[in-house]
């Protein structure tokens, strides 16, 4: 059986100037949490949005393969994609404060998903919404349903977003840095909630984060992104035990104790900055900052397999 989500060779550009994602491949199996890590601006959000076909205007995507439950997402038109979104695949965002519509109540925004995709009655949808609010740890769900987003705290709003994403029992949940904008204590709660829901509901989850502590705790699999490419991908234990890519190694060095990293600390205090990548860029994008770089790094870089299910993008041999 094919993976729940299978993406191969995803490219995303904005206009003709930037290549935000360059040949990214990743798979999410049923019931697993796949973490996508990398510093800010490396293309994590764009990858997720491209999968959902939610790219901002001016963004265009191409891929060698992109399937969800075996269905070819590249062949779906807008309407077909809309039938999947919020239904079999759902997404939650980094900005809980602005991601809910200020003009409608929580209840109205939650129920419309179920009504649209499952044709549920308002009554049934409201019941389901109340159940889910309770499930994500919101007390007095009946009261909350009638409230407007501005009446809720950031943590509550993110819980509402999560509950809303679960309305139609999705197979795949994409969570784009769901805790970054929250207070530290709330971050831990939301993360625990997500991990718990993932396990209980058997969700396939693509969790985007730049917090390696989170990764160590919840991920089944990790992909490390750098400048629009997945530079290393492995099962979590494998990656932490035997990192191969110099960038991954650098990242791990910056995490003295997994799970104890300061939450607001940016990932990777590796010296240097990410280069601006245009369409014609060749070679390893990390070479400006890499201790192992030599002249061959400016040419085509092979993808090596360190072991089955563990590959990395570097000239250094396995």
């Amino acid at each position: 059986m094919s993976a729940l989500l299978d993406v191969e060779g995803l490219e995303v550009g904005f206009g003709s100037r930037t290549s935000a994602v360059r040949g990214t491949s990743l798979t999410v199996e049923r019931g697993e949490t796949h973490c996508l890590v990398g510093e800010s601006g490396c293309g994590k959000s764009v990858t997720a949005l491209a999968v959902m076909n939610l790219l901002a205007r001016g963004g265009h995507r191409t891929a060698r393969r992109m399937t969800f439950q075996g269905k070819d997402l590249l062949k779906l038109n807008d309407g077909g994609m809309a039938k999947l979104r919020g239904n079999a695949m759902a997404m939650i965002f980094q900005e809980p404060m602005t991601s809910l519509n200020p003009a409608y109540t929580v209840g109205s925004q939650m129920t419309e998903v179920l009504r649209r995709h499952k044709g549920a009655s308002q009554r049934a949808a409201t019941d389901r919404a109340a159940d889910l609010l309770a499930r994500v740890g919101i007390t007095a769900p009946g009261l909350r349903l009638g409230q407007f987003p501005h009446q809720l705290s950031g943590g509550l709003r993110q819980r509402v977003m999560i509950a809303m994403a679960l309305m139609c029992d999705p197979q795949l949940l994409i969570a784009d840095e769901p805790t970054t904008a929250l207070d530290v204590t709330v971050q831990a709660q939301i993360l625990r909630l997500l991990a718990e829901l993932q396990r209980d509901l058997g969700l396939g989850m693509l969790l985007i984060t730049h917090d390696l502590g989170i990764v160590a705790r919840v991920a089944t699999r990790v992909s490390v992104m750098y400048a629009g490419e997945v530079v290393e991908s492995a099962a979590t234990a494998q990656l932490f035990a035997d990192p191969r890519h110099p960038y991954t190694k650098g990242l791990l060095r910056c995490v003295p104790v997994p799970g104890k990293q300061r939450q607001d600390e940016p990932l990777g205090s590796i010296p240097g900055t990410v280069p601006r990548i245009g369409p014609g860029f060749a070679g390893c994008a990390f070479r400006e900052r890499c201790d192992f770089a030599d002249e061959t790094c400016a040419h085509i870089i092979p993808r090596h397999a360190a072991s089955p299910g563990h590959d990395y993008l570097c000239r250094l041999p396995a």
Binding site: M52, M81, A82, G86, S99, N101, P102, A103, Y104, H117
Partner: peptide, 27 residues
């Protein structure tokens, strides 16, 4: 249309009419 809540509405798979006339126009 450029706001986060419209992205959410699209992520929920709502129809184009609902996105435009319910979620965007109201604001």
């Amino acid at each position: 249309m450029g706001s986060d809540y419209i992205r959410t509405a699209r992520a929920k798979g709502l129809s184009r009419a609902s996105i435009l006339l319910k979620h965007a126009l109201r604001n």
